[in-house]
Amino acid sequence: MSPAYILKRILLIGYTLLVVSLIVFAITQILPADAAVMMLGENATPDALAALRVKMGLNDSIWLQYLHWLAGVLHGDFGLSMRTGQPVAPAMFEALGRSLLLALFSIVLMLVLAIPLGIIAAVRRGRAVDLGVSFLSYVGVSLPEFVTATLVVLVLADWLQWLPATGYVPLTEDPLRGLRHLVLPVLTVSLILIAHVSRMVRSELVDVLHSDYIRAARLKGLSKRQVLFKHALRNALLPTITIVALDVGYLLGGVIVVEEIFALPGIGRQLIVAIQARDLPSIQAGALILATTYAVANFLADIAYAWLDRRIQYD
């Protein structure tokens, strides 16, 4: 992996974020709502509105507004919330922290369950275990988060009363209660990922187990176990890194829904609130931060892949 490859990837991230910022800005800025009216209310005097427009730069050309906004973003300044009048950035980043916690727990749970499930299904291909995992993964990828959430709340919170249905307690305040509140959201978010990734691990491993070099290793006298752990797994799990990174997109989408359902004050919920209130700076900030998270996850996955896979000659 050469420095040029890393440089190229960094340039690509820059380009990605530029395009994303343009899209986000374009989509939000052509909103039919007049930002000045929204802030001052319907009854504001025309003079006050005009003054505010000048102050907010709403009379400038759209490009100038974009550049102005972009310059602010690059300094970590996303503007003032139209809803609260407070700076957007601190609230958003605080919310992002909570969302990342949810995402992190979900990814860990997913890896812990999906990889062994995929391996077992591949090794016992065609047997009952394989069919079971296969069936569950079909069901898993077909359940939207709001359905999963409904089911887990019905069963675990309503009927069995094991866990709280909604709410959020910071881990720093009361770790145990905080964790109890996180269980249902994490289960909900990770289900679709577990289903998808276990299926991918299975099909990759089945392919690898059919390859010539696995047969060659078996014919050198190595046991099935040795071949599986030393020769096959590494090669089957490599592509999974990329798949997991791509799934971060679903994960972030799922986070939005799940936070709304479980009243978890993360960035997804902030975004929904902002969208419902037509709070432009908050929408822009939320969307941009989510997209950046995704782009960075993919960047890290690419670098990890390149580092682990010696075959690929990056230039």
Partner: peptide
């Protein structure tokens, strides 16, 4: 017995060797 008393040489060395070892 495999690999010890009977060895085998395969057709294509680019597929019979594990690319990541």
């Amino acid at each position: 017995i495999r690999g010890k008393r009977i060895g085998m040489v395969f057709q294509d060395p680019s597929t019979s060797l594990n690319p990541t070892l």
